[in-house]
Design a protein around this nucleic acid. Structure first.
Lengths: 234, 234
DNA sequence: CTGCCCGATATGTACAGGTATAAGAGCGAC
DNA sequence: GTCGCTCTTATACCTGTACATATCGGGCAG
């Protein structure tokens, strides 16, 4: 016997509530029954009902306010979730062979636009690393990255010829705050040559800004091969 | 008096655990103490510790397995979360004035590529709607959408001259499964003319496929104005 | 009528204890 | 050895209970 009776798990309750929202039983803007009312209906406890409703609220279907009750959102604010794996993992995940090639790495003074971007006052040195990631021998992603020396002093001695700067960084800065942007850019001379694409080709591009405890760590611009699609299901 | 002693809330515990991960006290791949061990350390209950760890696992920092224990992930699988609001809401959120203009709407037989994309066998009719969304008088997004008649029969009589098809759909199909893709495309004749952009300009493009209970509902291609960036913080 | 306070109420969170389930570890039969 | 079994253990989840806290709305003083 699984459990004593036909008691609903929080998963069951989530499914039932979602079904009622989808079918229109509980229309948008409607206040749904209080937790304790649902407890008597489903024959479980408030803890369980609470978890179900809380997760549905987190997923954007409901809005909950103390005393006000739980309301069905009119236009559910859907959230797309993208996994952001290492490039190597992303490539290997498709079954392709991964290859990495360093193009160049030097220590330099950061250019003004970058200092502005990172909110850094005063001069600062950084490693400028450029690298290519291949999938099955074809260029997959061109990585153009700056790593702030003040935040990661070891970078001055780092060797990126075998390991990508991303994996190198993850060893040292495992967790951090990230600001990610995606955009469409035009292939310039460098990108066109490296990606084997015509000049001006639209390139799916990601910019990634990373901080650790308020200190800027790295700025990366990732140029994906023509035709790249970032896909998710929600 | 807030609570009886200095007991930790699940938020406190999350913060402490995260701090230990970030500072390397609990290095990647390390198994951290069992829930009951943490209970004695933090002086709370397993429910509380459990919630803290569960949420950290959801956020991609930890991996939890029954019996195996809780492990710090080497390369935290970070998840970027993007809110997917209505275009109108997105524009109004920036403080800009929203304007909508219908370009065309007709019922047609679906082209082959679309039927293949939606996994539909046999002929099927759909509404083909094209519309422009403006922010402060400038084109912001060109929407090219197909709505499957079999799934939303009212679409044959719908009038999209005042309301965008997206808002119209949300009234009828509040919740659904979505597959979202983002890519960089080249502005073709239509897009270039409507967006007031040069031919061939890189365009940030989203494709959105929607199902309700396994039935394909709509396919939309959203072309954003040149320079558009999709940004998030994680 | 207006502004403030205060009680009722719904959700937020915590505690204490229990059962269910997955999976590693060790043992024995073959 | 190795396959299959049981035992143990750590997490997953549930039941009940209690108190905390935000907020709506009504009542009262000015």
């Amino acid at each position: 016997m699984s459990r004593q009776k036909d008691n609903k798990s929080f998963r069951d309750i989530k499914a039932i509530v979602l079904e009622r929202i989808q079918s229109g039983t509980w229309a948008p803007d409607a206040i749904l029954p209080s937790e304790s009312a649902l407890v008597t209906e489903f024959g479980s406890t408030r803890t369980t009902v609470n978890r179900a409703l809380r997760e549905l609220a987190e997923e954007g279907y409901l809005e909950r306010k103390r005393k006000a009750g739980t309301r069905v959102l009119r236009a559910p604010v859907r959230h797309a979730r993208f996994a952001i794996p290492l490039t190597r993992v992303e490539i290997e995940g498709t079954g392709a062979r991964y290859r990495y090639a360093l193009i160049g790495a030097e220590m330099r003074d950061m250019p003004d636009w970058l200092r502005a971007r990172l909110d850094l006052r005063g001069a600062a040195r950084a490693a400028h690393v450029r690298a290519l990631h291949y999938a099955d021998g074809k260029p997959f992603q061109y990585e153009d990255r700056w790593i702030v020396e003040a935040s990661v002093p070891e970078v001055a001695e780092a060797d990126f010829s075998d390991t990508g700067p991303n994996e190198w960084l993850i060893e040292r800065i495992p967790v951090s705050n990230v600001e990610l942007s995606f955009m469409a850019t035009r292939a310039d001379q460098t990108v066109a040559a490296l990606m084997d694409a015509p000049l001006g080709e639209p390139i799916f591009t990601a910019e990634r800004l990373t901080w650790l405890r308020g200190q800027p760590v790295t700025f990366a611009r990732l140029h994906f091969a023509p035709g790249y699609r970032m896909t998710t299901r929600i």
